[in-house]
Amino acid sequence: MTEVIYILWLRQLQHYWRSKARLLGSLGQPLLFLVTFGFGFGPMYARASGGGNYMDFLAPGIVSMSILFTAVFSGLEVIWDRQFGFLKETLVAPISRTEIMIGKTLGGASIAMIQGLIVLSLTYVLGFRIPSLASLGLGLVFMFLIAVFFTGLGLTIASKMKDMHGFQLIMNFLIMPIFFLSGALFPLENLPPAIYFISRIDPLTYGVDGLRGAIAGMSVFGIYNDLAIIGSLSILVCAIGAVLFSRIEA
C-alpha cells in the first residue's frame, strides 16, 4: 500500500525536477505579480487602509496563487498520461483506485508546496517578514491544504476529460475566476452582490484568508474557520476523485 503510493509520488517529483524549464517558468508569473502589483498598488493600498503595508497583504495571496496553478496543472497532467498511453499502465495494475488517487494527490501537492516555498522565499527578498516560527508552521499547514485541494480538483476534472481541448475552458472559466475572486490581490470588501457571492463560494478564498491570518496576522473569517472549511473541502474533493477514478476508462 505505502510503497505503491510512494512510487506514484516519486514519479511526479522526478518529472518535476527534470524539467527545469517548467520549474523556472512557473516562477516568472508570481515574481511579475509581486513586483508589479506590489509596487504599483502599494501607495494606493497604504492610503485606502490608513497606512497598511500592501506587501504584507499581497505576499500570502501570491504564494497561494503559485500553489493554485501548480497544483491544478499537476492534477491535469493525468490527461497527458492518457494521451501518451501511460495511464493504462497504472489503471490495469492490481492496485486500488484510492491508492492511485492518494499517490497522485500527494505527488501534485508536494510539487505545489515546493513551488509555494520558493515563492515564499522570494517574498522575503522583497521585504515580507513572517512574525514567528509558529506562524510559519501554521502557514505551511494552509499551504499544504490549498495544494491538496487543488491537486484533487485537477485530478477530478482530468478523470472526466478525454483530451486537452477543454483546457482553455477550464483555465478561463474556472481557475482564473477562482484566483481573481479569492481575495489574493485585493480585499473582498464593498463588492457588488454577485461578485461577493462568488467570492464566498470560492474555496481559495478560505485558503488565502487562512494563510494570510497565519503568516501576516490578517484574517476576515478567523483562522480556525478557514482551517475547517479548506480541510473538509480537501477531504471531499479527494473522495469524489477516488470515486471518479474507479470509473475511468483509458
Binding site: R11, Q14, H15, R18, S19, F84, G85, F86, K88, E89
Partner: peptide, 11 residues
C-alpha cells in the same frame, strides 16, 4: 502488453 504505446518517456 498493449498494442499502442504505454511507457513514460520522461523516465
Amino acid at each position: 502488453v498493449f498494442q499502442d504505446h504505454s511507457l513514460d518517456d520522461e523516465l
